[in-house]
Amino acid sequence: MRLISLLGLVIPVLLSTQHTHAQIKNAKTATVKIFGNTPAVKTIIEKEGKDRQFAKVDWNQTTKLAVVTYDSSKTSADEVLKRIALAGFDNEKFLAPDDAYIQLAKAEQYERILKPALKNGTEHQVDHTNHSQGLQTIIQPSASTKSADEKTAFAQLTNPYFALKDALVKTDAVVAAAQAEAFQAAIKAVDMNKLSHDEHTVWMKVMDKLATDAAGITKNKDVAKQRVAFASLSTTLYELLKVSKVDGPIYYQHCPMFNEGKGAHWLSKENAVKNPFFGVQMISCGSTVETLN
């Protein structure tokens, strides 16, 4: 009996020493903020961060702080954080690729406060979840873009337009709606004092129509209806850009099959055809009919 109780004492002691033996050698720790929202995320972050006996991560959901312990002779805190970011979680050092973030379960998509708000159209990936919370990542025609685009009066219109087009290429109704809203904001921001005579004439003619079509896309969550509005929006915008100076070539492209063979046009910055009317189904269907310079 005594022996057994002694054993009972010894075994946990042994186990605990083994536990300390299994600990990380040359251990260094770093405390880093990693963004995530649900308890389920804790498992993912800690699993992604772990590297055999060389690194482990302990993440606290409330504080968002992670304690990264790593063997400094084998790896680094950056390597651990990079893996976590590639799994979709922004942290102080690395921003997750957008495609990794989008692949997280809807409930796990946290607010990306580290990612700077987009100022121009070079990045088309848009935050999916936050459109209900005020669209902070959607393109806004800010003062800085305006000053940069003085030579082309309508550049602030084309940027959200191309983002909208790209969303339709991907058949993404949510992003398309968000970009159409940015486009509406851009219409309001056009400074008519800076327009040339020709630009002004056409602008007065098309302004309302552009706003209506954009509103049609924003309101509608059905991508088929969005595309009908987009077809109309594109032709109208083309009329406007024809009389205006554009920044770099813009390609006016034609899809012969949309709307039961009636066809439709769209504008693109690339000569390579990416059809926004059918998405992946017929992505390269269509041709460039005119190049605006």
Binding site: D222, V223, F278, V280, Q281, M282
Partner: peptide, 14 residues
Amino acid sequence: KKEDHSKHSGMDHG
């Protein structure tokens, strides 16, 4: 199998 994201079917070219 590749997913067909677009909802409207019946397009002969698809």
